[in-house]
Amino acid sequence: MKRLRQAINNSDISRFRFHFQLFAFGLLIYGGYLAIDFGSNYIPAFACPFVETRGGTCYLYPLQHQLNMPLSQLFSGRGIGLLTGFITFLLMFVLFNKAWCGFACPLGTVQDWITKLRNRFGIRYSTYSETVFSRQKNIKYVLLALLLLLSLGMSNSLFGMQKLSGDFSTSYCMICPGRTVLPLFTGDMSQLVIDFSSKTKTVLTGLGMAVTGLFFTGAFVKKRFFCLLCPMSALQYIFSKAGLLRLKKDGMKCTRCGNCYRVCDVGIREIADDLESTMIVQDDCMMCLKCVSACPEEGCLKATFLGLPVYEATEQGFFKRMGGRS
């Protein structure tokens, strides 16, 4: 047992993650070929329904549909549908917490691949200042709020406004890069168009194209650029504290050496500088556990599942990973 622990702690999490992501990508994007429908409609990650061969569906899609109902029906059968859907999503999410982003989300994986590509070319990443960063962080909450309100707004008149037209159906999906990018992996380019059928659709799909462009260029210059804007991430974070998989920190052991912050793809500074919190998952965190692997202090950072450590920072592991590189 101790041996196994040590072997795990000495391992290179990034390599494991790379393979796992590949596997999850295959499952979620091509799973349909094998008639796998994994977790059906409630995946807490961008397993986009616009991919025909998918093996699971991003929860935001059914959520937007289900919300398109008059509020008066909230306590009828449709309301129960919404509730069970939400509970399923929550159960799945709680299991792996934000590791869905780091290990399973196809869109996240694509961004990591783009990063690899950039690195291969030896092109440097860009950084931005803290103020920009902290401002950008809030966009995802705005997107989440819009997503919920626009869906509700089709069957209800909100804030004394008229009901919105049906063209706002799954409005977020219209601008989500999941819809445009992921089908490309099955050779399906049909989403890469602007839909001129109505004014609303033109604007939304037009925006979608712009976001797609932004997605690619963003990912190329900045690791996980889109994730910082992702409304799924916002939705997840609200429930993150309930996660069974946790990222924990022992501030007493931390030397604030900053290694963890150094390697974090999304630039979470708290991981190094916050000495008080024991549960350290921040809203942009994707639980990739790179920080754990870069921390040289015994047991300072660790991932636990149901309170049991699964991956822990150790001095030995650190030097194994950081020592013999070239």
């Binding site: 690195n119 990443y125 900053g258 040289p296």
Partner: peptide, 20 residues
């Protein structure tokens, strides 16, 4: 303290050394 860097490229290694 030891140096930890993420990407094997000077643009990441030099700032990593600085951070150390």
């Amino acid at each position: 303290d030891a140096v930890a860097y993420d990407e094997s490229a000077l643009y990441d290694m030099i700032p990593s050394v600085a951070d150390r």
